[in-house]
């Protein structure tokens, strides 16, 4: 316990850390994980590297494509534009932490039902944005869904099916498939 405090203090107010690697603690998907990062390590890099959570994708690395979307507490953020060292006590949720023990998150199931996945590279990020929307708004309308996914680039063009999957979750009815 004393040890853990010392590690968290490494990034505490007033203290200068780095540029050499230093130990930090992250709360990821309900677990407390210790890892070494440099101050320049982004959250996306920390997740995919030392933490081995490769569901989070890095494509543009500039906040433009949103493939790296995770939650900080309840907020969807681009983890390429967050430094691991600044996360602190906030809860991180990644695509790996979304499903229950033996069942998919409803958004994941709906993506399968409505064929909202093609090559799949942008899918983890899209699912995280959709699940964040659903958590604060159980019945989003088309406009709200379109806004929630507006930061995502999907080169396969899955957007219409993503919207249909989300509409279906909100209404529990079959939306028209054009």
């Amino acid at each position: 316990m004393a040890n853990e405090h010392r590690k968290e203090d490494a990034a505490a107010a007033g203290r200068i850390a780095g540029p050499a690697p230093l130990p930090i603690v992250l709360r990821v998907n309900g677990e407390t994980r210790e890892l070494m990062v440099e101050p320049r390590t982004t959250l996306a890099e920390a997740l995919r590297g030392p933490l081995g959570l490769t569901g989070t994708k890095i494509a543009c690395n500039h906040g433009v494509c949103s493939a790296c979307t995770v939650w900080l507490d309840d907020l969807a953020v681009a983890s390429c534009s967050v430094l691991a060292i600044e996360v602190g006590e906030r809860r991180i949720t990644t695509i790996e932490g979304l499903a229950g023990q033996d069942r998919l998150h409803p958004v994941q199931a709906a993506f399968i039902d409505y064929d909202a996945v093609q090559c799949g590279f942008c899918t983890p990020g899209l699912v995280m944005s959709c699940a964040a929307l659903l958590a604060r708004n159980p019945r989003p309308d088309r406009k709200e869904i379109e806004t929630a996914i507006s930061g995502h680039l999907c080169r396969c063009g899955t957007y219409p099916h993503v919207v249909q999957a989300m509409l279906a979750l909100g209404t529990r009815e079959e939306p028209d498939l054009e």
Binding site: A11, A12, A13, G14, R15, I16, A17, G18, P19, E38, P39, R40, L83, I85, E86
Partner: peptide
């Protein structure tokens, strides 16, 4: 990114 050191500010005037 090049390496850099990190300092969380304790107050606006310190920053």
């Amino acid at each position: 990114m090049e390496p850099f050191a990190w300092q969380p500010a304790a107050s606006p005037s310190e920053a």
